[in-house]
Structure formats: C-alpha cells, structure tokens
Design a protein around this nucleic acid. Structure first.
Lengths: 221, 221
DNA sequence: AATACTTTTTAGATTTGTCTAAATTTATTT
DNA sequence: AAATAAATTTAGACAAATCTAAAAAGTATT
C-alpha cells in the first residue's frame, strides 16, 4: 500500500466518517468538517480521484472506492490504537486522547502499529467505545442503538459517544456517563424529547434530546 | 516554545549533531547529512536565522543560538524516548528503532512526551547508549572514550555507537557487540590500527580501525 | 598577485496545499 | 419556465520546501 500525505489522510478519514450518515458526501460538508474552503476540497478530490481512492463526478458528490475505504480503515486503526495507548498506558483522560492521536495517526509504519496492537493486548474498542479495525481492516459491527431509541426500563450499556467536541465530553463527565456505564430510561417527555435516566445508585436525572442523540448503547444485557 | 515544521526540525537536529565535532557547520556538510542540495540549505538558514535559532553570516558557516540548542534538545529528547519505548516495550530490535523514531519525534506535544517519560520510568539513555535530555533539556555528560583510546587489558562497557547507518549495526550484531557489552582490548596493530578484542567467554577477534572509531566505552569498571 | 578551483549564494522554476474571486452548474421559488 | 439562490468548480495567486543553473565569494596554486 502506498503512502499518503497528512492532508490526503485527513480528507480520506473525514469522508469515511461523513459517509456513514448518508451515502455520499458533498463539497460543503467536507469543507466544514476540515475547516478548509470548498475550492480546496475540489482540488483534493481531483487528486484523490486520480489516485483511484474515490468515485467522483463534478457536482455529484463523492464516496470512497473500496481502495479508499481500505486506506481509511488503516488510518482509523492507527488513530484508535494510539487513543487506547494514551488512555490506558499514559493515563491521559478520556477527553484528551483524541487531539494527540490526530497527530500520531499519521506515522504510518505497519510494523509499528501491529506491534503496538500486540503490546496493548489487541484491544477491540478505543476509549470512546469505537471499534478498532484489525490488521485486515475488519471492524467489529456492534449492534448498537441510539439512546433515543432505547425502550423504557431496559438496562443498557453505553458503548459509543459520537460527537468528540470537548463540550459534550465535559457534560458527560459531569453527569458521570462514560463508555460502559449501565443505564436505563425511566421517562420520556414528548414536549422537548428530553428524558429521565438512571445510572447506578444515583437518583434519576434529566438529559436533553441533543445529548441523547449522541449517546449509543448496546442492549440485551 | 513555538512550533516548527518537520523540515525545520530536521535541519535543527542535524546542525546540533554536526556541531559536536567542530564548532561551526558548513553548507555542504549539512546538505550531505540531509541529502538536500546546498541551495536548499542556504534558504533554510535564512529562515532559521530570522527565527533567531542560529547565528549565521553569509559564507561563514552557522551554529545554533542558545534558543536553537534548546529546540534541538527537545527534539532529541522526543527521539530518544520513542527509541526507548520501541525497543523496551514494543520489542523492536536495536537497529530498527532509529528510523521509526525519526517520524514519531515530530509529534511535539509536551504532555505526551512527559507522560511517556514517566511511563518508561525516566530512562537515562536510549537503546544506542545516547543520553536522554530531561524536561529542561539537561543531558547527562557521560565521560566516555573512544575504543581506539582504551588502554590494553582494561575492561570497559560499550556505552555508545556513533554511526547509525545499518551497515555498522549489522556488523556489530554479527560480532555480538551491543550497548552494555563488556570488553577489553588485547592487542593493537600499528600497521592498520586494527585491534584484537575479547568479549565475554568468546575467543579474541579482530576489528578494524573504522569500526573501533565508532564504538565508545565507559571505563573504570 | 593572477588564475583556477571550490564553496556558497542568488535567481528563477516546480510541487503541494491552500486561498479569493469569478464563473458555472444545480436547486429552489415564484 | 424564468428568475433567484445556493453549491460547486475554475482560474489565478501565494507560501513552504525543494530543485537547477548561473553568479559571487572565498581558498588554493602556480
């Protein structure tokens, strides 16, 4: 597999993440995500298309080719392994790891990453609960649902938090919600879609719809 | 402390290393070391001078300012801590760590490096025997001498190997000489300055002048 | 000291990734 | 469907880091 520049990698990664929501990604979406101008996105798309990493017809949006997805999964693997290392070994707190991993992920030496994986004991999820792709880019598809879809009075485990802005992390920290937290929804209010939830032995408390939309849980346990 | 580009950091580090030999570094020396053309060196020197990282008058060679030395020691600290991590934790072999650390060293997050240092137990030397600068850039000045200067029949410990090309490392591996190896010089030949040395329980064997010049030892033990 | 050689610097070009401003295409509204 | 608005692309510029070729400065040689 070839080597890509830091810029190229950031574009590929961003497309991979944005694709999840819908099928195809637009110029403006990407420029917002990467804090560049739309014109810069177009330039890079031409370049990545020439390298066969994505499908793209002018004005039609783009999506990663299978080759592009492979590259993306490699970057995500590196990112999440470093996050795990930072949290587990260096004792960084949950909300600090992302930024540092953004830099480490671009050191792309296969042996380094495979040995790091081994050293860490082949972890399956990073500190945010996101699954870590293996050497072949295979990713564990965990049947997780959004907290907004969790039925009342069903115990579930927080498995993922989607937004990585420090705002949400601060709020979650304050409410003592993290990956692995056991919780259940006690009441939902139609007026604003807020809900009352219970975690551990604390009394119930309320969270907003916006927050609930960013929390994902695994249930059946 | 400001942030520098990967290129700038590579120049600063190279100057630091070349300075050791003599006082000042020339354009050609640096271009040879970095595998760039002399014209590129001149361009970068202007830039680094403008940033007050070095002293430089056209045609006169250059040397790092005290500010530049501080930056260099920071880079070297990162490099050597990563080398230690790779060898000690990820079980990379001695001769593989340098190349990988060349990339990791440019991730300059102070907290990352200080926590890595702590995680590793504040090691004082890297796997090549080179001292690791502390948080303030202080470096342990070990009174080591070149193997060519070691008197006959004095037991000494290999403390450093200066050339990091894979050629020398391969040779040392084959002769089973590494950092910490106990050895003594049994005989010297004036004709070609080769010498017979003894390590551990093996029979004596000969090494060339070129090799001996690249091996440094601590003695008195 | 004049000539020849080496080293260093300057001048101008190239590549990568970005930008602004203008043009084009697609989508929306009346 | 024509007009308007929004999204996207093109065209041209710029900064960083590099290069080649030519000029300038410094060193060595006769």
């Amino acid at each position: 597999m070839l080597n890509f520049s830091t810029s190229e990698e950031n574009y590929i990664k961003a497309i991979f993440h944005l694709q999840k929501e819908d099928g195809t990604v637009t110029t403006n979406e990407l420029s917002r995500e990467l804090k560049t101008k739309p014109a810069s996105v177009t330039d890079m798309m031409k370049k990545l298309k020439a390298k066969k990493l994505l499908h793209y017809q002018p004005y039609q949006g783009f999506r990663l080719s299978s080759e592009g997805s492979k590259v993306a999964l490699g970057i995500i693997r590196r990112h999440r392994l470093w996050e795990y290392f930072l949290a587990e070994k260096l004792k960084f707190s949950w909300d600090e790891v992302h930024e540092v991993a953004e830099h480490l992920e671009h050191v792309s030496n296969k042996k380094l990453i495979d040995k790091l994986d081994e050293f860490l004991g082949f972890p399956r999820v990073d500190p945010h609960g996101d699954p870590i792709p293996d050497q072949d880019g295979k990713i564990e598809s965990s049947r997780q649902i959004c907290l907004t879809d969790l039925p009342l009075n069903k115990v579930a485990l927080v498995s993922h938090v989607s937004d990585q802005s420090s705002g949400i992390l601060e709020l979650l920290k304050h409410k003592k919600i993290g990956i692995g937290t056991k919780l259940e929804v006690k009441k939902k209010f139609d007026f604003d879609n807020s809900m009352e939830i219970k975690t551990g032995r604390q009394p119930v408390f309320t969270i907003s719809e916006q927050l609930a939309q960013n929390i994902f849980v695994k249930y059946g346990a």
